[in-house]
Design a protein around this nucleic acid. Structure first.
Length: 604
RNA sequence: GGUCCGGUAGCUCAGCUGGAUAGAGCAACAGCCUUCUAAGCUGUGGGUCUCGGGUUCGAAUCCCGACCGGAUCACCA
């Protein structure tokens, strides 16, 4: 039973005994005691003031007295400040907590729920490389999967690759016309970048054609439709759907280039998938699901042949599911994908990590899946996150205002390497490879933390002109704290050192005459919060909660580290306690950061 | 126009299931390395928590109404 649970129980008993009332759990309000007062945990007694008919301070004192008398020694002291009852928990309790934490290898991990959650994220189009917007999506998706695993879910990470459609044909067409057979090998470019260049090229040539047509007196609307390039792209799409061998061959070849490029980026970013679906393979399934819904009367067909769902009963509009020419739309393929996924896995909860611009889409999808009989349909989670904005607004692929994912990672790692050059004294005797590996972890750590620490729901700003920080509330700050601890632990094990590692395992409930230092106690208390933080992050789908906690823990440790010596402490018991504390801070920091997909360097 | 989301220090962000004097980082300024890693620690300055009502012993937090910003309401994805 956690400290909070014990105190809630005791407080309820106190209120019952003193005022003869059964208090609700929600009335027992606990908070961490503010640093300016003595105590570890504080009971807010205002909720009982009315029924006690006494002044707040008196109620606090009465409950405090009762807890001292009946708290089975848990509470060492108390003080009442107005309506706040500050409780001091004895050192023995905290040391016991620390030892319990130490004994748990997977501290923070919640019990197995025996349920499966599928998390869809990334979901790129195969016509351009990944940019900063995708980076946020990928990092959030991966982190959410890790967090839910820590909350006892069996998680399947999945990706739906949007590999067909007019946008792909545009790249293909531009490559055919202007590519001269260029390949990733001949150009030395990553496949996704190569294809992206032709997507941009298409747009440029297309715009030129529109301008030409308009100069000839055509209005813009018509020019956009009549431009030869667009007509050719549409023709190519029709051929693709008709399984034209030549078009399919080219499509397959170019997509392979892109996948190779994506794989490289994913690998570097540190994200992965358990199962990948391709739109080219799911959209037909979607069509047949819609046909089924049509025959069961869920949907209806209009005179022009298009198929619709009537959602007016749910307060929404009517939604198109199949075009009049029989081709499918985005919604159709999402239904098909859901069908296949449900065939492949016993999904209890489906989570879609997709930007908030698609909220309406997922509202509709939820209703449609429910109507079609998918058990997870009604309860599907659209993990809707905000956009990444640049100082002058949104990123636009075709206008070249995107921050490229590969470039950004390059820059972060290069910056990390540059900074580490000034730290040569701490990185002596390290190989070039190790230095590069540290720079990689630190650079990516800075990037990931920068993105994940922001509340996912909110839009966030990225200013390319200002480099991402490596000081303060950052990933490297937390990595640095960890590296410091590792350094101390290495030294504690060195043969020169009179102490052995075993001694740190036997703190034995003693702290010497002086008792726990406030900084030690604050650290233990912080460590105790971790499982609750993991639960909170899971319930709220928020990696940011983990970031905040890791930062607080690192701050507490650095303050402790600054004020108290670990290895030079003469009192063997205290020294052992501090080592144990350091070891477990490192453990929890690493655990928390792993939930964010951030790796920890052993030194930096 | 309907719906949804946001508005907290110069900047980027925490805090939001109501609790004590609203917190960090960056930027600015002042200190701390012969001592376990200074990517650190300590201090100073910086706030009508967009505005106005309401509920409450108590509101940045909850409710209502404005204002500002964003998203969305396609035979696009």
């Amino acid at each position: 039973m956690s400290l909070e649970e014990q105190i809630v129980k005791l407080a309820k008993a106190a209120v019952k005994a003193l005022y003869g009332v059964e208090a609700e759990d929600s009335q027992i309000q606990l908070q961490k005691t503010r640093p300016e007062f003595e105590g570890n945990i504080t009971l807010v007694v205002f909720p009982f003031v009315k029924l006690a008919r006494k002044a707040p301070a008196q109620v606090a004192t009465e409950i405090g007295e009762w807890l001292m008398a009946n708290g089975e020694g848990l509470i060492a002291k108390y003080n009442a400040v107005q309506g706040f009852l500050n409780l001091v928990i004895g050192d023995a309790f905290w040391i016991q907590q620390l030892e319990a934490i130490d004994a748990e290898a997977n501290y923070g991990q919640q019990p197995d729920r025996k349920q499966l959650m599928m998390v869809e994220y990334s979901s790129p189009n195969t016509n351009k490389p990944l940019h900063l917007g995708h980076v946020r999506n990928n990092l959030l998706g991966y982190s959410i999967a890790k967090i839910q695993e820590a909350n006892g879910w069996k998680v399947v990470k999945t990706n739906i690759v949007n590999d067909r459609g007019i946008h792909i044909c545009k790249s293909m067409l531009a490559w055919l016309k202007f590519g001269n057979g260029e390949t990733p090998e001949t150009s030395g470019k990553k496949g996704d970048h190569l294809i992206g260049d032709y997507y941009v090229r298409f747009d440029k040539e297309y715009k030129a054609q529109i301008a030409e047509l308009m100069a000839g007196g055509m209005d813009e609307e018509t020019a956009k439709k009549e431009a030869p390039l667009m007509k050719e792209a549409q023709e190519m799409l029709r051929k693709w759907e008709a399984n034209d061998p030549e078009v399919r061959g080219l499509w397959a070849k170019m997509n392979e280039w892109v996948y190779a490029g994506f794989d490289e980026t994913y690998k570097r970013m540190g994200v992965s998938f358990d199962k990948i679906y391709y739109e080219s393979k799911t959209y037909l399934e979607g069509k047949s699901e819609v046909e089924k819904g049509l025959s069961s009367g869920q949907f209806y067909r209009r005179e022009d042949g298009s198929v619709w769902a009537d959602l007016t009963a749910d307060g929404l509009d009517e939604k198109l599911l199949l075009r009049s020419d029989g081709t499918s739309v985005y919604m159709t393929q999402d239904i098909g994908t859901a069908k296949l996924r449900f065939q492949d896995y016993p999904i209890d909860k489906m989570v879609y990590v997709v930007g908030n611009e698609q909220e309406y889409h997922f509202k509709v999808l939820s209703i449609l899946l429910d109507r079609l009989g998918f058990p997870f349909g009604k309860e599907l989670v659209h993990f809707s996150y905000g956009m990444v904005e640049l100082p002058n607004g949104k990123m636009k692929s075709r206008e070249g205002t995107v921050v490229d994912a590969d470039d950004l990672m390059d820059k972060m790692i290069a910056d990390a390497k540059e900074i580490s050059k000034d730290k040569v004294n701490t990185l002596q005797g390290i190989t070039e490879d190790e230095t590069n590996e540290i720079a990689r972890k630190v650079g990516l750590g800075a990037l990931k933390y920068f993105i994940l620490k922001v509340d996912p729901r909110k839009n966030m700003l990225f200013n390319p002109a200002e480099s991402i920080d490596f000081n303060g509330n950052t990933g490297p700050f937390i990595q640095y704290t960890y590296a410091r601890i590792q350094s101390v632990l290495r030294k504690s094990n060195s043969p020169k050192d009179g102490q052995t590692a075993e001694r740190s395992n036997s703190v034995s409930g003693q702290t010497g005459e002086a008792g726990l230092d406030p900084k030690e106690l604050a650290l233990i208390q912080r460590l105790c919060e971790y499982p609750g933080v993991v639960r909170n992050a899971g319930e709220n789908f928020s990696p940011a909660v983990i970031c905040n906690y890791a930062y607080d823990l690192a701050c507490d440790f650095n303050s402790f580290y600054h004020d108290l010596s670990i290895l030079n402490e003469q009192d063997a018991t205290k020294r052992a306690l501090r080592l144990l504390l350091a070891k477990n801070v490192a453990k929890v920091l690493q655990s928390a950061m792993s939930l964010l997909g951030i790796e920890m360097p052993e030194r930096m």
